[in-house]
Amino acid sequence: MSGLNMQDDPVEVSALDPAAIDQAVQNALAAFAGAGSLDELKAARTAHQGDKSPLALANRGIGALPPTAKAEAGKRVGKARGQVGAAVKERQAQLEADRDRRILVEESVDVTMIPARRPLGRRHPVELMGQRMADLMVGMGWEIAEGPEVEAEWFNFDALNFDIDHPARQMQDTFYVEPADSGLVLRTQTSPVQARAMLERGVPLYIACVGRVYRTDELDATHMPAFHQLEGLAVDEGLTMAHLKGTLDRLASELFGDDITTRLRPSFFPFTEPSAEMDLRCFVCRGSNPQCRSCSGTGWIEWGGCGMVNRNVLSACGVDPDRYSGFAFGMGIDRALQFRTGQSDMRELIEGDVRFGAQFGMEI
């Protein structure tokens, strides 16, 4: 007895049975017609056109047939798959059209309708915070001073004891106004107002300045190239670090509550000596969580810099440093807003989304 002739003898492949193929097509057409949404159609397409669908198995079974039978089986399966593919495209077009019509009805807006109420406008929360801090300083007997944002380099650096080769004067930290020899910069702090006030008003002097400053920082969750500061300057006879500490403690307690804890940490600034950074006890973990993201596990959050006014600064502004002493401090208004409200991303302050400001109302 001779063996199987693979060239001519038939091979039984159940998936290629004409009746089975016709049944698979009918099942697919019924499933597509019964799909009431695009999600249901997607599930039906996977079942009847996917890798494990009956027609896909039939297509793979063609390889088991002898060469003389492959052509006929291929035509039969190809026709069936084409019929199923056309049916699913047609049904998808119908469902997408139904969805679009439904959206037009459900989301339609009558732009001619008179609104039930007029939405109230709101001032930006940073502006409100700056005014609140300024009001606190006025309440302590200080005056509010102002100065230009495009500032002379002398007021921004030289008068504040920044050497000509100080890193802060380089292009990577400061925005210079063209041409390069114009001598003008976008102020990097509000401290130039202090120099102007000493020259224009004389001493004794108690002033605070609220304003926008500029630095070449990359925009991220905690930094902005344009941000806001509150700076204070007091120059009088007999002022000490104790007066500075008392002023800052009062400002902190008014903004963040009587239970706030502060500390002064030694630091360095060209325009103050001695200098310090003022830290606030972490509002989130209160110093009890080494994994705290707000304070990086230290228990403290930096708020701003401060110190006793450097003798060179007093002399540059025409004040006798042997008779008068002074203290100065600077705090970020944007950061104070973060501390007070729990806001985590500074970029929200400048995105212009009215919903962000709406949550603050008229008071913060």
Score class of each variant (00 low, 15 high):
residue 334 D to L: 11
residue 290 P to F: 09
residue 254 E to K: 05
residue 260 I to F: 04
residue 272 T to V: 13
residue 200 E to L: 14
residue 209 C to K: 11
residue 291 Q to C: 02
residue 345 D to R: 05
residue 225 P to D: 09
residue 294 S to I: 14
residue 231 E to L: 03
residue 216 T to V: 15
residue 277 E to S: 04
residue 319 V to D: 11
residue 231 E to C: 04
residue 209 C to N: 15
residue 271 F to T: 00
residue 294 S to A: 15
residue 299 G to A: 08
residue 337 L to I: 13
residue 293 R to C: 06
residue 255 L to T: 08
residue 288 S to C: 02
residue 302 E to L: 04
residue 341 T to M: 09
residue 293 R to Q: 15
residue 297 G to D: 07
residue 254 E to H: 07
residue 307 G to P: 00
residue 273 E to S: 06
residue 345 D to A: 09
residue 327 F to A: 06
residue 201 R to M: 15
residue 246 G to Y: 00
residue 278 M to C: 11
residue 287 G to Y: 01
residue 252 A to W: 11
residue 325 S to V: 09
residue 210 V to Q: 12
residue 203 V to A: 13
residue 319 V to P: 11
residue 207 I to D: 05
residue 311 R to Q: 06
residue 239 L to W: 03
residue 204 P to L: 10
residue 341 T to V: 08
residue 274 P to M: 05
residue 288 S to E: 14
residue 258 D to P: 10
residue 244 L to K: 01
residue 238 G to S: 10
residue 273 E to I: 02
residue 233 L to F: 01
residue 262 T to W: 04
residue 330 G to M: 06
residue 222 T to R: 13
residue 229 Q to N: 04
residue 263 R to W: 12
residue 282 C to V: 10
residue 268 F to D: 10
residue 334 D to P: 11
residue 227 F to E: 05
residue 291 Q to F: 08
residue 310 N to W: 03
residue 221 A to T: 14
residue 330 G to D: 04
residue 328 A to I: 02
residue 279 D to M: 05
residue 346 M to N: 05
residue 282 C to L: 11
residue 245 K to N: 02
residue 296 S to Y: 13
residue 201 R to L: 15
residue 318 G to V: 11
residue 266 P to G: 08
residue 288 S to L: 10
residue 201 R to K: 15
residue 267 S to I: 01
residue 224 M to Q: 15
residue 305 G to N: 03
residue 295 C to P: 11
residue 230 L to C: 01
residue 213 V to W: 09
residue 252 A to G: 01
residue 210 V to S: 14
residue 313 V to S: 03
residue 243 H to V: 00
residue 266 P to M: 03
residue 217 D to N: 15
residue 331 M to H: 11
residue 265 R to Y: 06
residue 327 F to S: 05
residue 306 C to E: 00
residue 310 N to T: 01
residue 308 M to P: 00
residue 291 Q to T: 08
residue 255 L to H: 03
residue 244 L to W: 03
residue 344 S to W: 11
residue 333 I to Y: 08
residue 207 I to G: 10
residue 277 E to K: 01
residue 227 F to P: 10
residue 281 R to V: 07
residue 203 V to L: 09
residue 253 S to D: 02
residue 225 P to R: 08
residue 262 T to R: 10
residue 256 F to C: 12
residue 310 N to C: 03
residue 242 A to E: 08
residue 202 G to E: 14
residue 230 L to R: 01
residue 317 C to N: 15
residue 327 F to G: 06
residue 312 N to A: 12
residue 313 V to E: 02
residue 209 C to R: 12
residue 230 L to H: 02
residue 225 P to H: 15
residue 232 G to F: 00
residue 286 R to F: 13
residue 296 S to L: 13
residue 346 M to Y: 03
residue 273 E to A: 07
residue 283 F to D: 06
residue 344 S to K: 14
residue 254 E to G: 05
residue 275 S to D: 04
residue 230 L to W: 01
residue 289 N to P: 02
residue 270 P to L: 02
residue 324 Y to P: 12
